[in-house]
């Protein structure tokens, strides 16, 4: 693995739970790994599987989706729709050779600032261990 590799993770966070949890982590000054870049969507149900594939195609080392806990969706059940698609996509991604740790769906409520840290740190650590996903980036980092 190239030395000093820092993964870049695209995160799709829902506006009402996980994005607010990340805001709360900020106001609570909780420190976590600087490897994620958040794209705000209104609901995890808005996350089109093509967004995820596109992120990987463009060189993301990991993709994290954050939504409200089951039963807590601001739009009643968008997170269930997200979960359904996620399970399918995960199967597809496996066939394409994508390592399990690179694609993750997490339920993080607006009150769980601490969980933003644990999830992101854990994911960054695991993806860092896997190394860069795209050969081009491998070269670039090396």
């Amino acid at each position: 693995m190239p030395e000093g590799f820092e993964p870049k993770i695209v995160a799709f966070f829902c506006n009402w739970c996980t994005y607010l949890a990340a805001d709360l982590a900020g106001t609570s000054r909780i420190k976590y790994a600087p490897n994620t870049r958040v794209v705000r969507v209104m609901c995890s149900g808005r996350v089109d599987p093509q967004f995820i594939l596109d992120a990987f195609a463009k060189g993301a080392d990991g993709v994290l989706i954050g939504g409200c806990h089951p039963g807590d969706c601001h739009y009643q059940e968008g997170n269930y729709k997200a979960l359904r698609r996620f399970v399918l996509l995960k199967r597809l991604a496996k066939q394409m050779g994508l390592e399990d740790e690179r694609l993750r769906l997490e339920w993080i409520s607006a009150a769980e600032g601490e969980r933003v840290k644990t999830v992101i740190n854990d994911m960054v650590e695991k993806v860092r261990a896997l190394g860069p996903r795209v050969p081009a980036r491998r070269k670039e980092v090396a």
Partner: peptide, 27 residues
């Protein structure tokens, strides 16, 4: 919420402020 937008197989449902192109551009 945009759930229908993500699900539409023909890409004919769009969402104001969260257009596919806007999100692709962000990515």
């Amino acid at each position: 919420c945009g759930t229908c937008v993500a699900a539409c197989p023909s890409g004919s449902i769009r969402q104001n402020l969260f257009e596919d192109q806007e999100i692709y551009a962000e990515i």
